[in-house]
């Protein structure tokens, strides 16, 4: 039986836009998948030579080790501010931020909202896993009601801490945002949709259409204290109802 593991039959391989550094993410964590999709989009749109990424503080603080593009490390929550300056000073470059929910929706809320309100020509990749992962599973602005975390051990008390925030819907109301969508990467179908969304976002960015925000609801096995597959199932049953997937703002509905 013929061995088809030859270049001519290659159907899928790792993109050049990822370095060969082993990811530090926990087994089964969505960050790795999202990194790969962003990198594949950068490769397919031939943007590697003019992409500048901005890493947050959080689990993806080391994102710059994995992307084979020029990258800057932002202080916690400030990535949209860095991106604002870079995008205005290098108008033709593909500028994107990669941020978690704590980075974007807690400490960085002002930077997020104002970058979107100014319609900065950037892509914001917003990974929403409902928790502060890197620091050990604390409650985040997107932690669901009654969801346990190390700082809401008895479940999030909405009376005390307010309800989880829907940042995508919030920024979709700002005229500066052009394309806002919420996706997931835990199953093949969702991965393919997320990649299409990211590709559109980077294309719109290159067409200087303003701020593109791609939120990806993802899992956090360690923080949620579940196996990867269990966490993905829990995400479907609990996160998706509150954070429904799909386009929230598309270019034609201005």
């Amino acid at each position: 039986m013929e061995d088809i593991k030859k270049a001519e039959y290659l159907a899928y391989k790792k993109t050049e836009v990822l370095t060969d550094k082993v990811l530090h993410y926990c087994p089964g964590c969505g960050h790795g998948t999202i990194h790969r999709l962003v990198a594949e989009v950068i490769e397919e749109l031939d943007l590697q030579h003019k992409t500048i990424g901005i890493a947050p503080v959080g689990c993806s603080v080391l994102a710059y080790e994995y992307f084979n593009v020029d990258f800057q490390e932002a202080a916690h929550g400030r990535a949209p501010a860095l991106a604002t300056a870079i995008s205005r000073l290098y108008p033709d470059h593909a500028v994107f931020t990669y941020q978690g929910d704590g980075d974007l929706a807690a400490i960085g809320t002002a930077e997020t909202i104002h970058a979107c309100n100014r319609g900065e020509n950037i892509v914001i990749v917003f990974v929403n896993n409902g928790i502060y992962g890197m620091t050990g599973g604390q409650m985040a602005p997107t932690t669901l009601e009654n969801m346990k975390s190390s700082t809401s051990p008895y479940g999030r008390d909405v009376k005390m801490m307010g309800s989880p925030m829907k940042m995508s819907e919030l920024v979709a109301n700002l005229p500066g945002t052009h394309y806002v969508t919420r996706q997931a990467v835990h199953k093949p179908g969702h991965v393919r949709k997320t990649k299409r969304a990211l590709k559109k976002a980077f294309q719109y960015q290159q067409e200087k259409k303003g701020t593109q925000l791609v939120e990806i609801v993802s899992n956090c096995n360690s923080g949620w204290k579940m196996t990867p597959n269990k966490s993905n199932q829990w995400m479907e049953e609990n996160m998706f109802p509150f954070f429904p997937l799909g386009d929230i703002k598309t270019p034609d509905d201005k």
């Binding site: 290659l10 899928y12 391989k13 790792k14 990822l18 082993v22 990811l23 993410y25 087994p27 089964g28 964590c29 969505g30 960050h31 790795g32 998948t33 790969r36 990467v185 835990h186 199953k187 093949p188 991965v191 393919r192």
Partner: peptide, 9 residues
């Protein structure tokens, strides 16, 4: 495409 570490060719 679902492998977070991209280990499958």
């Amino acid at each position: 495409i679902v492998c977070p570490d991209g280990v499958i060719t």
